[in-house]
């Protein structure tokens, strides 16, 4: 079988995948990105490149992808619907594919109100659901979003999407995941899991509908550095649930950073060993990329599978 990307190969050959996240900088040097990429390259199968996350201007995800690839990691290009209309999105997709990028993650994007340009205008010409469907149609039916034929060299992305089991209405979250799978999402990365009980309930519903057999679900985790960080997410980030015992555990820890890493490792091990239908883990070490090797190693997920090109 020919795989669209290495990530797809890892997942479809039955491995428990590991993806991480690299956040591009708010300046024009990729030195930091390259440093992080070199450090984590043997420990992850692919890494997300965020697309101006929290609506803050940064090096674009595709340009950063070039640096990341150059360092030997397969990028997962994040594409939000916030900043580009369907013309610009497709232009960027053609460009990303021409540069060798093979994974595309389709998402709505944080509202611009949260970023450093709150007076800007958002686009949302298409939404994330439509984007998934349109990228699939580009690949499978060789059509631009308008329906016009792509005569040759259509981009063939391995298509990803996100799911947030912690947003509301809870019972509609699995419905919406099903819609994304119907639209063409081949892998799903979830929002950071802190409320394990709720995630388990979510996965139970996913399994009841057999969605775990139609898409690859990667559980999102985030190592916390301090109780303040946990508290901030608990009260200020819409769509996140951080149980109070996690805040307290970090607060009472002698070494909060070590405690945060330990907690993250416990979560990964728990998910890996106990929650059926999860095919990998997505580690979002926000502004803490250097911790990835330790986490992957201590979870027994190192070395990563290698394939012939």
């Amino acid at each position: 079988m020919k795989y669209l990307s290495k990530l797809q190969q890892v997942l479809e050959t039955g491995n428990f995948a590991v993806t991480a996240e690299i956040g591009p900088p708010k300046h024009a040097s990729a030195e930091g990105v390259r440093h992080h990429a070199h450090m984590m390259k043997d420990y992850v199968d692919a890494t997300n490149i965020t697309d101006c996350q929290t609506a803050i201007v940064r090096i674009s995800s595709i340009a950063t992808g070039v640096h990341v690839m150059d360092c030997g990691i397969e990028p997962i290009v994040q594409m939000t619907c916030r900043d580009r209309n369907r013309i610009a999105m497709q232009a960027d997709m053609l460009g990303a594919y021409s540069l060798g990028m093979r994974n595309l993650l389709c998402l709505s994007g944080d509202h611009q109100k949260f970023g450093n340009h709150p007076t800007s205008k958002n686009v949302y010409d298409v939404d994330s659901m439509q984007l998934i469907y349109l990228v699939k149609r580009m690949r499978d039916e060789k059509k631009f979003f308008s329906g016009e034929e792509i005569k040759e060299h259509e981009p063939q992305f391995f298509i990803g999407a996100v799911a947030n089991p912690f947003a509301d209405p809870f019972e509609f979250r699995v419905d919406r995941l099903e819609k994304k799978v119907e639209a063409g999402a081949q892998f799903i990365q979830t929002q950071c899991i802190f409320d394990m009980e709720r995630f388990e309930r979510f996965m139970e519903m996913v399994r009841e509908r057999g969605l775990h057999e139609r898409t690859h679900i990667l559980a999102g985790v985030t190592p916390l550095k301090s109780w303040r960080g946990a508290k901030y997410m608990q009260s200020n980030v819409s769509g996140m649930i951080v149980p109070e015992e996690i805040v307290q555990r970090l607060k009472s820890a002698e070494d909060p950073k070590k405690e945060g890493v330990d907690l993250c490792i416990e979560q990964i091990n728990y998910i890996k060993d106990n929650i059926k239908g999860v095919h990998g883990v997505h580690v979002m070490a926000i502004a803490w990329e250097e911790i990835i090797p330790e986490i992957v190693q201590r979870c027994g997920l190192y070395p990563r599978p290698k394939f012939e090109d």
Binding site: C81, S108, H111, D127, A167, D168, G239
Partner: peptide, 26 residues
């Protein structure tokens, strides 16, 4: 909807409110 999405709600919807403000219904 602050993002004009046609296949919502997005992941920022919580407790019936929009991610942009606790005063805005999703």
């Amino acid at each position: 909807c602050s993002k004009s999405i046609l296949n919502g709600p997005c992941g920022g919807s919580q407790y019936g409110k929009c991610e942009i403000s606790k005063d805005t219904d999703c």
